[in-house]
Design a protein around this nucleic acid. Structure first.
Lengths: 336, 336
DNA sequence: CTGTTAGCGCATTCAT
DNA sequence: ATGAATGCGCTAACAG
């Protein structure tokens, strides 16, 4: 690997001239610039990024704490990451992947070793010690999701509460009056997993606003569990005509119940879930959804972090994204 | 950020003693070791990884060329990446993400800047200029997938040909004699996309071995396209009782055709696809598959690269993984 | 066992 | 407009 010194020798200039020619931070005469350029090409020189970053005291690398478990919505991870990489690249950063640390010690170790200038947290919980730790360290970070107290932190999150409310609003307008809400698994509700909390909050508001009967249950993220829960709700509420859920993992089970009960979608029954477009189009009949703006999340998660990196004491940026209602069921739902 | 020199001062030793105490590459007396340890803790010192890696002349970072487009099987990306990260971490490496370069120049730039010790290629094509370029550069890399000529290169790939043959073998043993094969999109076949090529090769072998009639078609990666193709095949072959496909994106459309034709799975018809477990369990009825060993691919892709990094001129490692047949349809398929 | 010193490859402040 | 010299934080060869 040729170094900058090699280039300097070959072009008969000093090392610093080469450096400045490359960075453009100093006027260089046209002739020497050309000599240098030629030397660079002949040697096939490429600046060593480790050295450059060490001298610059910034790594130009962002860390991404990658989820440790699969909590559903996995289709989206792909689009999310693609968008995050693209955004990072456009800002001159690369993205380094780590499995999300489980202890505060790990967070400290990862952030204090100077490999990354900032980190992006995924799957943030209401109470999240990673967040507390990063805040204490005063280390730059952004969150996909949010905690209970987000003062001073930048984040981008889906407005789950609003998404659920919008879904109910639409169904009510279509004439539905008995609508079930299937929540995330009990364990996630207990653990104060953000989406589970906010979705349920949205459900409560929708109930109140529209004077609806409460018809709800939690279910594990499996089709089998979903089958059980939904079939019981249908038994208890024979006039049920619609269902709203953020628990996309259980959808095939829910579909199965309806099929077994002789209820056709969308002629006899409406289903709306919070999910990605790809996910929606992989069910039959295709799913109506509150579309998850995956790419926006990925892009903005990086953008807000880079912003805080470049303007050291900029105000935190907090974005609540709206899910868009997309009705994919070919014919309309029942009007009662 | 405290540096090693700070620690040395505080512990009243020289910088190199601290360094050696940390690396353990030199015997250190118990007392000084403890003094150093105490200084480290009091200062909250963490070695600067950029500096360490610069001095060591290795970055301990692996680059992953992340797919630029979504070619299906997206459920697997998540598991794949998790496994890759874990394996990398267990070897002391981290993983850096880049969108897969589109030009040779980009490949050169990314590899020659010294930020990564090696790279992992995903979605390798039969003819892949990224591969040619890396080979010319003599830069360490491993592939998920393979090219036409893999001499001297390490890779891990699914044995697609064998997977398709195994699926046919099973169906034939169950008594099926008219079995359709739905290939990848025409464009991917034209482009010599590896999986498309090897799957079709497996299909041809299965035909020959079992003396079957050729019933096949390509279809785009959408449910709509799959619907068209499969419905035509059924029209032309009324006695069709089974279907094999690596094109999982079109599955909902295929299922729909069967449903519309009054054919129940698995009572009247058998479907076997190359897919992940998660994908299989999200269809109704759940899909029988040649299970894609996602995690093995992620882990081994990293393992073989790290191997070649540690033993400079080790022989290339080439692994063809077997997909496991998993019949998920509750009752058995038709016996004729 | 421990200290001194010279790099690793580049950025940058002084000089000229 | 250019060069020389110092530093980024750490490793390791050399010297005791």
């Amino acid at each position: 690997m040729p170094t900058m010194q090699d280039v300097a020798n070959k072009a008969n200039v000093s090392l610093s001239t080469v450096s400045h020619a490359l960075s453009g931070k100093r006027p260089i005469s046209k002739e020497t610039r050309e000599r240098i350029q030629q030397a660079i090409e002949e040697l096939g020189f490429h600046p060593n990024e480790l050295a450059r970053r060490l001298a610059n005291k910034e790594s130009k690398i962002l860390g991404l704490f990658f989820p440790r478990f699969q909590t559903g919505l996995s289709d989206m991870q792909f689009e999310f990451i693609q968008a995050a990489i693209d955004s990072a690249e456009s800002h001159g950063y690369a993205i380094l992947l780590w499995r999300s640390p489980t202890s505060t010690d790990e967070v400290i170790k990862l952030t204090q070793q100077g490999l990354v200038d900032g980190v992006i947290l995924m799957e943030v919980r209401q109470k999240d010690e990673r967040v507390d730790c990063l805040r204490d360290l005063n280390f730059p970070f952004s969150m996909i999701g949010r905690t209970e107290d987000n003062s001073g932190i930048s984040f981008v999150d889906l407005d789950n509460s609003q998404a659920i409310q919008d879904a109910f609003q639409y169904l009510v307008e279509q004439g539905h009056s008995q609508i079930a809400y299937i929540n995330y698994p009990e364990s996630m509700v207990q653990a104060n997993y953000g989406p589970a909390v906010y979705c349920y909050e949205g459900y409560q508001k929708a109930l109140k606003k529209n004077g609806l009967k409460m018809i709800t249950g939690c279910c594990e993220s499996t089709s089998a569990a979903a089958y059980q829960v939904v079939s019981q709700l249908i038994r208890e509420n024979p006039h049920l005509t619609a269902l709203v859920t953020p628990n996309e993992a259980g959808l095939p089970g829910m579909y199965q119940v309806l099929q077994d009960a002789g209820k056709k979608i969308p002629a006899d029954f409406s289903v709306i879930a919070i999910a990605s477009q790809r996910r929606a189009e992989r069910l039959i009949p295709s799913l109506s959804t509150m579309d998850f703006p995956t790419e926006d999340e990925g892009r903005m998660g990086v953008d807000i972090l880079v912003d805080s990196l470049q303007e050291k004491d900029a105000a935190p940026i907090q974005k609540l994204l709206k899910a868009k209602l997309v009705i994919r069921q070919s014919s309309g739902p029942v009007l009662r």
